[in-house]
Amino acid sequence: MGIIRRTWIRLAGAWAWRRPNGPVRLMAAFSQAERGSSYDVIAALERTERRDLRRTYLFHALDESRHARIFRRRVQALGRQDRAEAALVDAGSLRATGIIGEAPLFEQMGELEFLAFVYVVESLALEQFQVYCDHGMPDPDTIAALRAIADDEKFHISYSRRELEKYRAAGRGAEVRAALFRVRARRIWQAWLRLSRRLGDAVSTLWLWALYLVCVAPFRPLARVEGGGWRTRDADPRPIAEFARAQA
């Protein structure tokens, strides 16, 4: 499984790093992901009933926030391209990519599953960074940044593994296994959703283009853009209650 995964990371990475503007887009995506993680870990800190974990969560959140800044600096060093920069501050993409969801992960998952999530995701990130570095895909400065970040990821993996072991030792091994399964399954499901969303967008774009050309074109002569300047406006003739209920 490990070999297959590493091969997949290598192949996908080769494409991701070499595509046009690839390094900048990757760094921007990583920066966003780290920002989102930071928010989620702070939310966990605020909501956890395990008071002994709060300090650990705090330092985890600080790591994520620092990583976001490191990746952001790489974006600026590598590209300065306006779209990548805009992606960093684009609230819509944080939502659309699922980095920040409707509710913090901790609220959706609870303590045990959140720890399982940290363990799985950080392990995958560490492996991903190692493959990138081992195969020299990024530039030397980015490799140095990834190696520094990988050291922090080891801390996140070790504390989450330690906590999961505690649950196992307390006789909750089945819950831990189930949580790890759910986390992995959810990642696959979310990857499928992202892919299907892209496919859906592509198909709908074609249909909507056709609609635009066929249905919109005939009305073009009727539509004109108004000039500027003040226009006197009268009050809406409808009774106020009716006006208030109308969406138009």
Partner: peptide, 10 residues
């Protein structure tokens, strides 16, 4: 009460 307005896209 409305008095006047300037329309989009201005």
């Amino acid at each position: 009460e409305p008095v006047a307005e300037i329309p989009f896209p201005h």
